[in-house]
Simulated scan of single mutants.
Amino acid sequence: MESQRNNPLHGKTLEAILNELVDYYGWEQMGQLVNINSFQFEPSVKSSLKFLRKTPWARKKVEDLYIRMIETK
Rank of each mutant, 00 (worst) to 15 (best):
F51N: 03
A16H: 09
L52K: 05
S48P: 03
D64S: 12
G31A: 04
K46C: 06
P8F: 09
L21E: 03
E63W: 04
R68A: 13
T55E: 12
Q32I: 13
N37F: 13
T13G: 10
F51D: 01
T13E: 10
A58H: 07
P8M: 08
M1W: 11
H10L: 05
V62I: 15
L18T: 00
K46P: 01
K46M: 07
S47V: 13
V22T: 01
S38G: 00
G31L: 00
E15Q: 15
Y24K: 13
V22L: 02
L9I: 06
K46N: 11
T55S: 15
F41A: 10
L9W: 09
P43G: 06
E71K: 15
Y25L: 05
D64W: 07
E20K: 13
E20Q: 15
Q32F: 10
N6R: 12
K60V: 12
L18Q: 01
P43T: 07
K61A: 15
G11W: 08
E20T: 11
E71L: 15
D23P: 00
E63H: 08
Q4I: 14
Y66C: 03
L49T: 03
N6E: 14
V34K: 02
W57P: 05
G31N: 00
E42A: 11
R5E: 11
Q29G: 02
N37A: 14
M69K: 06
Q29S: 11
E71M: 12
